[in-house]
């Protein structure tokens, strides 16, 4: 029971990172139907920014987090304008390849400029372990979970309660109709990229703090896992992405805990395929059948 609870805590920490990343995937996909392959690399940039400001300016964790979110948001919006906007009316597969190109560019550009080696993320928050009911919870785990939940609630408020959020949902449903009622789709798409990228940047700083190590290729695998999480949750659905993230995080730690860590990726994909076969649009996705 104790090990089980311990794994749940670990799974939730990892899951909240996936969830933050998955939210960006799901929002971008929801609005322009693009699998933004470069999203995981924005998370990497967020982590590197955190590393840089903490090491150079000795700022505290929150300044690092907020500034990483701002930088990531700006980068996400810049990528959208330069690489994706010219392809708004091209086949979707073209935009996908462009996103892969952007991902390669960010990964290899960072390796070229700053070296490909792994580096230690500074301990901006001293780690304390709390022992409650026989399980160990670190203050960093609590910080990750609380930050992730606060950000998700914030996102939900923006999407549901603000004018911008309403416009986002409108463009996601029907970009042409939204344009007819005076919403500028480019504006909204930009905003969506900014919002999603900010969350990815936050996830990058959090993971740096959690695992203590970062490198230019750190975004690849979590990026793909987070996309899987978004699909499991039902791509386009914001609560779905959050749930999907936690499901994948818990699953990975669970499989690892029972001694099958070599198969943890396989387990994630088996669950993905099983869920898609039963629910072709994920847990919370809407299954839109074509009208005949």
């Amino acid at each position: 029971m104790q090990t089980f609870l311990q794994q749940v805590i670990n799974g939730l920490s990892l899951g909240s990172i996936y969830a933050l990343l998955a939210l960006g995937y799901t929002m971008v996909y929801g609005i322009i139907k693009l699998i933004n392959f470069a999203h995981g690399d924005i998370y990497m940039i967020g982590a590197f920014w955190g590393y840089y400001v903490i090491n150079t300016y000795h700022v505290n964790f929150f300044v690092a987090l907020i500034s990483a979110m701002i930088i990531s948001a700006l980068l996400g919006m810049l990528i959208e304008v330069l690489a994706y906007r010219p392809l708004r009316h091209s086949p979707r597969i073209t935009a996908l390849i462009t996103a892969i190109g952007v991902s390669y560019f960010l990964e290899n550009g960072m390796s070229f400029l700053f070296g490909a080696d792994t580096r230690d993320f500074p301990q901006a928050v001293a780690q304390h372990n709390y022992h409650v009911l026989g399980i160990t919870v670190s203050n960093i785990q609590v910080l990750i979970l609380v930050t992730a939940v606060v950000l998700m609630i914030g996102l939900q408020l923006i999407v549901q309660k603000t004018k911008m959020g309403t416009a986002m949902r409108a463009v996601a449903v029907d970009p042409e109709a939204a344009a007819l009622v005076g919403i500028d789709p480019n504006h909204i798409i930009s905003f969506t990229f900014g919002l999603g990228s900010a969350l990815a940047g936050a996830a990058g700083v959090l993971i740096g703090l959690y695992y203590n190590s970062i490198d230019p290729l750190m975004g690849m695998t979590p990026g793909i896992k987070a996309f899987v999480a978004a699909v499991v949750g039902g791509i386009g659905s914001i609560p779905g992405a959050a749930i999907g993230g936690f499901v994948i995080g818990l699953l990975e730690t669970g499989v690892q805990a029972i001694g099958l860590s070599a198969y943890k990726d396989a387990a994630v994909y088996i669950v993905l395929i099983v869920i898609l076969v039963i629910l072709p649009s994920g847990l919370l996705g809407k299954n839109v059948k074509e009208k005949v």
Binding site: F227, V228, A266, L272, V277, S281
Partner: peptide, 28 residues
């Protein structure tokens, strides 16, 4: 048989997953 009923990107992600499962098996 199970995945080709999926549409577009869902199929892409399912086939990607299947290939990863093959890789993990070969790895072990």
């Amino acid at each position: 048989i199970p995945t080709l009923r999926l549409r577009g990107d869902y199929l892409a992600i399912a086939t990607m997953g299947a290939a990863e499962i093959i890789r993990v098996i070969l790895n072990n």
